[in-house]
Design a protein around this nucleic acid. Structure first.
Lengths: 344, 344
DNA sequence: TTGTAGGCGTTATCAA
DNA sequence: TTGATAACGCCTACAA
């Protein structure tokens, strides 16, 4: 029953060299710096590579050169669709290029983050992409010591480790809340799931805006990951606590969608009796009925540009401003449109 | 402006050896086979490792041993939440263990799949996890030649490359359609987005069940990726073509949710006038109002067990049956519950 | 229980 | 333009 796993013979640079009648060094050069090799030699080597199906051994390359092609990507979780979008941006930008994104999950634990970074350091990565701007001092030190471009993504803030790309959280939240106020809502609650640092800053933005308008604050949060189900529960709890609530701003679109469903189930009319605004502009926000007002961030772009920034930095041209603000857009849809267009 | 990236000094095994007064081999042994080292020596080595913050260089390990710790994970896309769940299972199972999942996207292209596999082969992976069972002959050959455990996930079928874990697609689809028929729906349509091989088999299951019940077939598909928005459009198109449709079974829950929203927007009552069943049991299916009937697969488990199967195989005990069926469960919710409980 | 020697596949450094 | 040689850091085999 015991199956034996036997590798196929894999060709090495020496095989290529032999097959094309040159030395291993020349074969290596033909692959890395083709312009320093005689055209005819180059052709022979390339032919041999193709014929043998030669693929360089990355371990040997890394060991010899002291640099790998790994781009370390450190995110809290792969399931959260927010990070999934970011990831897709990174992966697409890496494309068929020489870099190889390698993902690790912190599970929202800063202790794990440090361990992960130490592990990445041992790989001599070509670059690092880390989510958020709340790294511990230890983590920042490790990242600085890696000797490679580092991009913090999702948010921007002061004191970048190296480069940053992202959008402002608190301001974006303020804009959403301001819009609700603008539409005439006055008893506006905040619903939040998994209050990670970004969610905290959104909450902060909510508080600022509510306070400056002299309105009452109503905050309901849960440590559970955000989801439609959680949104329904939060909405239910909110209505039990504050039955007169007339609008909610939530942490994430799936929570907002849950709130919407809870309203549907209870016969509460949206947006007439209840305004609902989410965050992130997930696909479901546009597809919902009524459509969900939300804040569009640019996660895919953050991922792809982060990758591009690393590639550029490695090629010698680091952007003049190492901090790139991708901004945000308030996307107003039916779930908060209580006043006729142009009014308010 | 040009910033120089300078690595911190990284300690090697020799540094550890020197610091603990032993040879490099002994230090290496202390780390890999602690029981073959004198307790006191072991303690010294460990102390040195901790003090220096030594982390082994994986490139050197791989080169010397001919095996890496990489587990190649080949999926079509990271954004699709179905694969995101799978991925989370894999990542969680890998956890703090010695293996390092490395993800690559085929973007649903079999040519890319082969290129990716060839690249993985050069890494001497410890194991491979590939989504689906529709690999090309070339891909299968490469996988076989890798000399490591290979698990095909998501579906099961005949002729596994090595091991398999997943659920039957056609049967699961049949069960959902049978349930709709059972509830008295008679003009049942299939809505499908991005018809990958699994979606095709679900469609096949739909056709079988519809045919065996002597009902009319109505199939609407789009090559676009599945989403709530796409679901709304498909539902709209369907109602234009076949206004008398009384139920839909869809490819994926997000499409089903889109269909539900479209019904809401048009004032079509669900489940009274329209039954809606989805697939995958995403969180939003449970949270929707009415709740969406769907088919639960076990994606997270597939991922974590695939990882476990690889670890077991490497440890020498390959499962007796290399094909593991994770089955499926029909999850009946309000969106199709037209008859009183127990009737039908 | 510990150490010595050799090699893994590639690249950097020189020299030709 | 090409090639010889010596790393890179670790592991396997063998020897002590």
């Amino acid at each position: 029953m015991a199956k034996k796993y036997k590798s196929n013979q894999i060709h090495t640079l020496r095989d290529v060299a032999r097959a094309s009648g040159v030395s291993a060094v020349t074969a290596s050069r033909a692959l890395r710096t083709p312009d320093r090799v005689a055209p005819e030699t180059l052709a022979r080597v390339r032919a041999a590579v193709a014929r043998l199906g030669y693929v360089p051994n990355p371990a040997a390359q890394t060991l010899a050169s002291g640099r790998s092609r790994v781009i370390g990507v450190v995110i809290p979780s792969v399931t959260n669709s927010v990070f999934a979008d970011l990831l897709r941006g990174v992966m697409d930008a890496a494309g068929d290029g020489p870099f190889q994104p390698q993902i690790a999950n912190t599970r929202y634990l800063s202790s794990r983050e440090e361990a992960i970074l130490r592990l990445f350091a041992s790989q001599r990565p070509a670059g690092m992409i880390v989510a958020g701007i709340d790294q511990s001092d230890a983590s920042r030190a490790i990242l600085r010591g890696m000797g490679c471009p580092v991009v913090q993504v999702m948010e921007i803030g002061p004191d970048p480790i190296d480069m940053m790309i992202g959008g402002p959280q608190a301001e974006a939240a303020r804009a959403a809340v301001a819009h609700l106020i603008d539409q005439g809502y006055r008893r506006i609650a905040f619903l939040g799931a998994r209050m990670d640092p970004r969610a905290q800053r959104r909450l902060f933005g909510y508080r600022q805006e509510i306070a400056s308008a002299g309105l009452p604050e109503r905050v309901l949060t849960t440590p559970r990951p955000s989801s439609v189900t959680v949104g329904r529960q939060l909405m239910g709890d909110l209505l039990a606590l504050h039955p007169d609530t007339d609008a909610v701003f939530s942490n994430n679109d799936d929570v907002a969608l849950g709130a919407l469903f809870e309203c549907t189930a209870r016969g509460i009319r949206v947006p007439a009796q209840m305004g609902i605004a989410g965050f992130n502009d997930l696909d479901l926000a546009a597809g919902a009925e009524p459509g969900l007002t939300t804040v569009r961030t640019h996660r895919y772009r953050m991922g792809s540009e982060a990758m591009a920034m690393i590639a550029a930095a490695l090629a010698g041209d680091r952007p003049a401003d190492p901090v790139r603000d991708t901004g945000f857009e308030l996307v107003v849809r039916a779930s908060t449109r209580r006043l006729p267009e142009g009014a308010g």
